[in-house]
Design a protein around this nucleic acid. Sequence first.
RNA 1: GCCCCCGUAGCUCAACAGGAUAGAGCACCGGAUUUCUAAUCCGGUGGUUGCUGGUUCAAGUCCAGCCGGGGGUACCA
Length: 569
Amino acid sequence: MDLEHAWSAALRTLARTLWQIEIEGTLLEPPTDPRFGDFTCNAPMRLAKQLRKPPRAIAEELARAVRNAGFPRLAKVEVAGAGFVNFTAGPEFLQEELARILSEGARYGRSTMGGGRKVLVEHCSANPTGPLHIAHGRQAAVGDSLAHILDFAGYRVEREFYINDTGNQIEMLGKSILWRLSDAAEPPDENCYRGDYIKDIAAELRASGRTDLEGAKRLGVERLLREIKRDLEDFRVSYDTWTSEDSLHKSGKVDEVLNFFNSWGLTYPKDGATYLKTTDHGDVEDKPLVKADGTFVYRLPDMAYHRDKYARGHEILIDLWGPDHHAHIATMKAGMKALNFNLVPMAEVRSASTAVPEQRPVAFEVLLIQYCRLLRGGVEQKMSKRAASYVTLRELMEEVGVDAARFFFAMRKPSAHLDFDLDVAKQQSKDNPYYYAGYAHARVCNITVKGLEDKKIAPADVTDGVWRGAYDASRIGPDEAALLKVARQFQRHLEIAARDLDPAFVAEYLRELSGAYQSYYELGKPDPGKKVLCDDEPTRRTRLAVSAAVQQVLRNGFALLGLHAPEKM
RNA sequence: GCCCCCGUAGCUCAACAGGAUAGAGCACCGGAUUUCUAAUCCGGUGGUUGCUGGUUCAAGUCCAGCCGGGGGUACCA
């Protein structure tokens, strides 16, 4: 446990003994101004009403108790402003943090906030009816980053892709392939897929000799799914499970759900279709489950699918959908409630062991990943799926690279529209946040290379290109301390990202940390005595240690977003 | 009509469970380099946080109502 957590726990204990209360929420925060010390606590103001005392009086009481309790590593505690209690830690605080970063390495920043709860992150789940395009790219980038973040935050994460390998759209895929097999200039159905890839599949189908609709559908799904998997793999997006909709039908799980609804009188016939009373659970209107022709509407297998997720023991179900699924959220929740799901907010899911199995609470969080606009030369690139003139994920990867693409997709709040400026993403300058952050990392790597060349670093102190020598922590100066203070915020940002299901906090943090290191590095320009590779050996070693720590934290952050940390630029 | 997202510096965006003086980058102006890689850094100009009320010791943040922009609203998925 680090100092911040230790102090937080101690403060909660003090509150219990002083006022017999439990303080909820965050207790210690980074102050807005370095003059306010290392941590600030605004609890006195929040407690004023409850305790019926002025905030300043509460703050004084708390500060006195802190002094008497003898908090470890505490240098100073004082009351300020309207009722803040500001804490300043002794130098050991950052010394220990530095040691922790270097010893924990790739694990530094990991949190236990998830408490091992089982989370299923289902994302992308594109229909195998065509190649992935950039909207899928954003979903995949956000989903995969989120999975990394939740894993790092202490959840047990499973990443899943749901394959819509049956139903109307697959029917259309089959027809499209058969159409391309014929001489017809126009498709038999206006919803047919017109992309050139259909022609390739048609050609392959012809070669196979099986030219019926079933054969076309099967080959189409198989081919396109393979393509999707390859795109995702190259985009560094990985999955633990691939669940097929068709398999849900074949196992009877879909019929089971329909029977459940029917037998409990939750459905009724209308115009030949079967409707579920979703308005009983908050939907704006009842929704059909079975069409008049007897086939299922996609939402029915979807409900069966989510029931299956639950049955597999997941406690938090996270779905990433496109914004066109907006209305589906209320319907799905209604369906799940009709299936007797005990839906609760994510923060309220407790460990499964404490709950009765049948009423085990489960969180269902849908993230609508907004579309993005592609800009080139400041002009929006219009996309039209019908004319098959949309930009594929593959094209994007080839044009701007996986790293820049993933950083761009991750850096904006997923629910907000994103302008993806292709020119900026390709630029190798400060404008491009990926290159900016990467440059800081590359600079640390380069210092090590340069140090070895100039014999300022002994080869024995370098492992895999990373400096791992001994250092004197007491030589940490103000500039190094400022850097370490930013570095230790990593876990905080990770936890916020996990709580809000938003990787943008990590992206934003990477900019902050890399910027801090750039500034630190530049100190050596006008004043060579401030270079990392300075002449004084003990100082040099300490600066190398601090640089290696920043390098490590940058790497950990990059990994959360699925990015490579460049070693040379 | 109903639902969701967004209105913060000229532009693109931050602001971490409501907290101390609303911050970055771009652009503009002025500086730093015979480089531990300038793909960089430092300083400056620039704000009635769309509007009006409300809650609160405290509101960019929460609530209500407007105004403006985007998206969604199938027996497609």
